[in-house]
């Protein structure tokens, strides 16, 4: 296998939360989750609430341990968090006693301990401006709106220029306009830095606009990554033009159809020849990866 094709690879990830009360059953959130991400690829993950997306992201970040299975990054097993993996948290997680710029500076200083204060400040300002926070540097998170806080969180993750960028619904609290602007900034940064991105979203259009591939997760418990939808639309993509592309609605309908009905149908355990192979998560000793599906070719 070449390293380019699986910069990140997860192998038979499983997460079980043990029962907390007597008589309750253990909760297996997801099971046998296998997927690969190529170097420099932009991937998103879509699935219903509670299927375990955030948990998978935390495992990729090294912040949580899977019950079983492993994650490889760049050929090495992920054993803990590191500066190689920047995280934008679902709940922004800013340090409330630091101002916006201090929050970003805290990250930059960790990345570049040798930098002067001026260099750190320049880097912070660059990324804060990129997310559109031009004159709120010196405000504390409690004095910022929800969307502004989230943007500071995004700036903090971008500013350390890591190899892998993990984002948990980063644009959830933003209005459509700001969201669009930051999505475009994100694509620009991604094209410049050639970071590998794994992002969770609930927004189908956002996923199509940004992604190379979209991982679709079935409903939990026993959630799986059912397939990887290939988005073969040409880049650079233009927000207003892309919807007129003949493939756009094929992809979009495929995604919506999955969310509305198939995510439910495929969930849990059912019988069938195919299923039995999937029971083990492997075929002939090889990991069973979710099939790449290109709705445009269907």
């Amino acid at each position: 296998m070449n390293d380019e094709s699986n910069f990140i690879s997860t192998q038979l990830l499983q997460k079980v939360y043990p029962a907390t009360k007597r008589g309750q059953e253990d909760l297996t959130v997801f099971d046998k989750v296998n997927f690969n991400i190529r170097k420099g690829e932009f991937t998103t993950c879509i699935g219903h609430s509670g299927c375990g997306k955030s948990t998978i992201l935390n495992i990729l970040a090294g912040l949580a341990e899977p019950t079983s299975g492993s994650v490889m990054m760049d050929g090495k097993s992920v054993s803990g968090p590191s500066l190689d993996k920047a995280v934008v948290f679902q709940n922004h997680s800013l340090l409330p006693w630091k101002t916006a710029i201090e929050n970003v500076a805290f990250a930059v200083k960790s990345r570049h301990p040798e930098w002067s204060l001026l260099q750190i400040r320049k880097q912070c300002v660059k990324y804060l401006e990129m997310v559109g926070l031009n004159d709120s540097y010196n405000r504390k998170p409690s004095e910022l709106s929800g969307g502004m806080r989230q943007r500071v969180g995004i700036a903090r993750a971008f500013a350390i220029e890591s190899k892998l960028l993990l984002m948990d619904e980063p644009f959830g609290a933003l209005d459509a306009l700001t969201r669009g602007i930051i999505q475009e900034e994100l694509i620009k940064i991604w094209e410049q830095t050639q970071q590998t991105v794994f992002m969770i979203t609930h927004d189908v259009d956002e996923a199509i606009f940004l992604s190379d591939r979209i991982f679709l997760m079935t409903n939990g418990p026993y959630a799986r990554v059912a397939e990887a939808v290939v988005v073969d639309l040409p880049r650079p993509r233009d927000r207003s033009q892309i919807v007129h592309h003949p493939d756009y609605y094929k992809i979009r309908n495929h995604l919506v159809d999955f969310l509305v009905s198939r995510s439910h149908e495929l969930s849990g355990s059912s019988n069938g020849a195919e299923e039995r192979q999937e029971e083990s998560g492997t075929v002939d000793g090889e990991l069973l990866l979710p099939p790449d599906v290109n709705p445009a070719l269907a």
Binding site: S82, V87, N91, S93, F106, A107, S110
Partner: peptide
């Protein structure tokens, strides 16, 4: 935990975590 996670993802040393995250928190 979220704040400690930030320090972890930034590979802060134990001392730096204690000083810049735990103490002010």
């Amino acid at each position: 935990n979220d704040w400690l996670n930030i320090a972890k993802t930034l590979e802060c040393s134990k001392f730096r975590t204690a000083y810049s995250v735990i103490l002010p928190a």
